[in-house]
Simulated assay, not measured.
Amino acid sequence: MADYIETARRVIETERAGLAALSAGLGEEFSRAVEMMLAVKGRVIVSGMGKSGHVGRKIAATFASTGTPAQFVHPAEASHGDLGMVTESDLALVLSNSGETPELADLIAHARRFRIPLIGVASRPGSTLLRQADLALVLPAAEEACGNGIVPTTSTTMTLALGDALAVALMEHRRFTPEHFRTFHPGGKLGALLATVGDLMGRDLPLVAEDAPMSEALLEISRKGYGVTGVVDGAGGLAGIITDGDLRRHMDGLLERRAAEVMTRAPRVIAPEALAAAALAEMQDRKITCLFAVEAGRPRGILHIHDCLRAGLV
């Protein structure tokens, strides 16, 4: 077992050394690559064969999910019709450790024929890919972690890291926010964490007027099922709320009172555009189960803690 762990550590250290060399070697070419991608009117077309292709799919997915339109095109499929996906408004980011992958030839020729900007990523500066590219991003000479130089390990790790670096540089330039990120990640835990109050809130609001009798307020609480009702003033603004705590405090002569006499004034509210996670934190902190979503003083929705639980926030 100790031997296995030693192997794992050797692999990780070898790849770490490759990443350190990649970082140290970054220069003007990297900045030019980012500027070229920012100038693209179409998409960044990522392509590569074999392990470079697998890495390329991930890079394209990362671009697409962080605000840079991108698509992976398999070089072999490109030679059989998919070159039509690569247009003059696009940019090609082509990956090949050796720079001599024969399956890339048609894609490279297509890019040159139609003057499509081409960024090549490879480890050999004199390779066909990098000689044909408008911009060459050269991977540093680094030992593959397999020990015999035949299994793409360090080279694919460096290529993946370079793709991530490009994606994040583009993302920061565009001031890509968590709200933007959620647009491309509506599902799963990440989508839940970035959901807004407006995404989850109910719009069939429990509301009564300030002068409504408490019998009407009780019916509204029961009918809407939130355990509370909002109380609105004559202008439609949220004047207060009535909770079960308010009911207990005013048990004596409750049905003889008006809503304004029982309600809690200036209740905690939240904006519809706020993150639902922030609303959940507020409810947990205040030990309450509901928050009204308010715009310009008027109630627009209501968020119950159960809405957050159903969305997978916890």
Rank of each mutant, 00 (worst) to 15 (best):
A195Y: 02
T196N: 03
T196M: 07
T196Q: 13
T196D: 04
T196E: 09
T196F: 03
V197Q: 01
V197R: 03
G198L: 00
G198V: 01
D199W: 09
D199L: 02
L200C: 04
L200E: 01
L200G: 01
L200F: 05
M201A: 01
M201G: 07
G202E: 10
G202L: 03
G202N: 11
G202Q: 11
R203T: 15
D204W: 10
L205Q: 06
L205R: 06
P206Y: 07
L207S: 05
L207C: 04
V208D: 07
V208R: 07
V208N: 06
A209R: 14
E210H: 09
E210G: 07
E210F: 09
D211T: 13
D211F: 11
D211Q: 14
A212D: 11
A212L: 03
A212C: 08
A212S: 14
A212G: 06
P213H: 13
P213A: 12
M214R: 07
M214Y: 09
S215F: 12
E216A: 14
E216F: 10
E216H: 13
E216T: 14
E216C: 07
A217S: 12
A217Y: 05
A217M: 01
L219W: 12
L219T: 13
L219K: 15
E220T: 14
E220K: 12
E220C: 12
I221E: 01
S222E: 05
S222R: 12
S222M: 04
R223C: 00
R223K: 14
R223N: 09
K224M: 03
K224R: 15
G225D: 03
G225M: 02
G225P: 05
Y226S: 00
G227Q: 03
V228P: 00
V228N: 00
T229Y: 02
T229S: 02
G230N: 00
V231A: 02
V231S: 02
V231P: 00
V231M: 01
V232A: 07
D233H: 08
D233W: 05
G234F: 04
G234K: 10
G234N: 09
G234D: 10
A235Q: 15
A235L: 11
G236T: 08
G237N: 14
G237Q: 14
L238N: 07
L238I: 07
L238E: 04
A239F: 09
G240W: 05
I241N: 03
I242P: 00
I242W: 02
T243P: 07
T243N: 08
T243G: 08
D244K: 12
D244T: 13
D244G: 12
G245W: 05
G245D: 03
D246Y: 01
D246C: 02
D246L: 00
D246R: 01
L247P: 04
L247N: 04
L247I: 15
L247A: 04
R248D: 01
R248Y: 07
R248I: 01
R249K: 12
H250T: 03
H250S: 10
D252W: 14
G253Y: 08
G253H: 06
G253F: 05
L254R: 06
L254H: 10
L255V: 10
L255G: 10
E256T: 14
R257N: 08
A259L: 03
A260D: 14
A260V: 15
E261H: 08
M263T: 10
M263C: 09
T264V: 07
T264I: 06
T264P: 08
T264F: 10
R265D: 11
A266V: 13
A266K: 15
P267V: 04
P267S: 07
R268V: 15
R268M: 14
R268P: 11
V269K: 08
V269H: 05
V269I: 13
